[in-house]
Design a protein around this nucleic acid. Sequence first.
DNA 1: GTTACTGCAAACTTTTTGCACGACA
DNA 2: TGTCGTGCAAAAAGTTTGCAGTAAC
Lengths: 153, 153
Amino acid sequence: MTVARDEVERRVESLSQALRNAGLRLTHQRLEVVREIAQSDEHPNAESVYHRVRARVPTISLDTVYRTLTTLADLGLVTRVAATLGPTRYDANVSHHHHFVCARCGLIRDVVDEQLDAVAVPHSASAFGIVESVEVQLRGVCKDCGKKEREHE
Amino acid sequence: MTVARDEVERRVESLSQALRNAGLRLTHQRLEVVREIAQSDEHPNAESVYHRVRARVPTISLDTVYRTLTTLADLGLVTRVAATLGPTRYDANVSHHHHFVCARCGLIRDVVDEQLDAVAVPHSASAFGIVESVEVQLRGVCKDCGKKEREHE
DNA sequence: GTTACTGCAAACTTTTTGCACGACA
DNA sequence: TGTCGTGCAAAAAGTTTGCAGTAAC
C-alpha cells in the first residue's frame, strides 16, 4: 500500500531536483502532487491523486493535477500505465519493471524480476522500428477478486 | 495493412459461429463490424471501425459500433489493446501474441514469437493473484516516425 | 518585477445509457 | 410474434484549453 518513508523522501527529493533542473518552479501544488505519487505504489489515476492531495491542499484543482502529471510524464519522471479499463494510471517507479494487472478490478502492481528484464527483442519486432523498452504485462485475477468469485459461485 | 482474404473469411465465419453459439442475432451491423475487424491488422479504435463500416452501411451509428465491440470483447472474440495515448484499440487476433507499440504515433503491430510466448511467470507475480496471460509490449519508435525525426533534426 | 503557474470555466474527446422503433429468429 | 438490437439523443467520464489573477524566482 505505501512506500517506505525514506524511499518516499528520496523520490520527492529527486523529483524536485529534476523539476529545478528543467527550469520549472517548485510550487506548493507540484510538490504535493509529486509527494502523493512518490508515496503510492498502487498506480493512481489523476482523479485519485486529486482527491488525496486535496486533503492537504484544499484549493487545488483537478486540471492542475492533470497539468502536473503531464509535465512529469513529459520529463520522464513518472510513466503512464495503459490500463485496459478506465482512466490512465501513473507510476512513480521509473526504473525497469513489469506489471501485474487484474482483469476484474483493474488493480496494478509492480513486478520486479531479472528474468523478465532479460527478455530478448525478436527480429520480427525490429522490423517495425527501434525498440526502446520491453514491458511484460501479467494479466489475471488478483487475490481479492479471486476470493469474491469463489464466495459468489 | 490487410489480412489475407481466406484468413478474413475464416475469422468472419468463426466470429459469426461464436455469436450464434452465444444466442445472439446475426444482424447486418454486427456482421459488418466483425468483417471490418477481421480484415484489419492495424488495431483500429471504435471511431475508425465506424468510419470504415459506414462506407458499406451508411445508417450505422457510432454507439452500435461501441456496443458491438463491447459484446465481442465480453465473448473474448476480440481483445482490447491498452494504448497509452488515445482511445482503446481492438484486436481481432485472439491467439497468443505480443505487440510492438510506437510511442510517437501510436502504431500497434502484432508480434508473433515463440521465445516471448515462453516467458515464465515469476513467483513475485503469483503473489498478487493468478496469472492467466502474459503479454510483452515492445515500445519504441516505428520506421515512419524514425524517418520523420531524422528529417526534421 | 517578470513570467510561469494556478483556478475557474468551458470545451472537447471518448464512451455509455434510456427510449421507442424496427428487424431477426 | 416476441424479443433483441438499432438509431437517436442526451449524458457521463476523462482530459484539455483560454483567460485573468497569483505566486515563484
